[in-house]
Structures are given as structure tokens and as C-alpha cells.
């Protein structure tokens, strides 16, 4: 497991308490944070939503499976799914290797992006945990 100071947390992203991230903007990529992938261990399977699905912030929208655990991903923003990262189907390990670039999960056309934390706030939360 990584120590908190070893975590990769990009400045320009927004974060949730359940360890998801979202880009800023109208149509944004979302995924899970370095902390989340590290906790989960080797991800072996990802179940993504379908293009056209709509979610409210906090809805269960995807599942991530490691060898011995299943975790739900909660949608970090409200909106409609416009694209999914199909590369994850064959290579779910991309989330472990590169959670913010190659390991993005899907793109949302945002209707609301309230209640998200910036890097500093997220880091504070992790330290408190």
C-alpha cells in the first residue's frame, strides 16, 4: 500500500469522498483515484455503464473487481454518459497503471458538478482517515 505522500493526485481534478475523480468542464472524463486503485489492488474486471445512461451524483455507476473483492463506483457528477473507455474491457489493469490518463472510465455530459473537493481538500480528508 502507498503512503499518503506517495499518492498521485493531479491538481486540476475534482475528487469525491468515495475516491472518484472528475475533470472540470461540461463534458468530462471520470475515474477512480490513485488511492482507490491502490486499495483495491490488481483490478481484473470493470463493468462500465452504457452510453446514454443517466446518473445523479452518488449513484452506483460501475463496478471494479479485484481477485477477491468487488467495489462499486459512485458517479462523481450528475449527467449523461456519452462515451466509455472500451480499452478497459481487455486491459482493466490500466486503472492500476495510470488511473487518470489511460485508466479513465467514462465521459459524462454534466448537468451538475456540485459538492466536489479540490486536491487540497481531498488530501486533508485522506489524512484524516
Amino acid at each position: 500500500m502507498k503512503e499518503i505522500n506517495e499518492l498521485n493526485l493531479p491538481e486540476n481534478f475534482l475528487y469525491t469522498e468515495q475516491h472518484e475523480w472528475a475533470e472540470k468542464g461540461d463534458v468530462v472524463k471520470v475515474g477512480v483515484t490513485d488511492y482507490a486503485q491502490d486499495q483495491l489492488g490488481d483490478i481484473v474486471f470493470v463493468e462500465l455503464p452504457e452510453v446514454g445512461d443517466s446518473f445523479e451524483k452518488g449513484d452506483e455507476c460501475a463496478t471494479l473487481e479485484s481477485v477477491k473483492a468487488v467495489s462499486e463506483m459512485y458517479c462523481p457528477v450528475s449527467g449523461e454518459v456519452v462515451e466509455i473507455n472500451e480499452a478497459l474491457e481487455d486491459e482493466p489493469g490500466l486503472i492500476n497503471e495510470d488511473p487518470y490518463e489511460k485508466g479513465w472510465m467514462f465521459k459524462v455530459k454534466v448537468t451538475s458538478a456540485d459538492g466536489l473537493m479540490d486536491k487540497a481538500a481531498y488530501l486533508e480528508m485522506l489524512k484524516g482517515a
Binding site: S66, V67, K68, A69, V70
Partner: peptide, 12 residues
């Protein structure tokens, strides 16, 4: 592929 099974996914 044990994540389908009762000891991990429990009621699901």
C-alpha cells in the same frame, strides 16, 4: 472469477 460467488458478492 470468484467475485461472482457468495463469499465475496454475498446477497448479490
Amino acid at each position: 472469477i470468484s467475485t461472482r460467488e457468495q463469499h465475496i458478492r454475498r446477497e448479490k
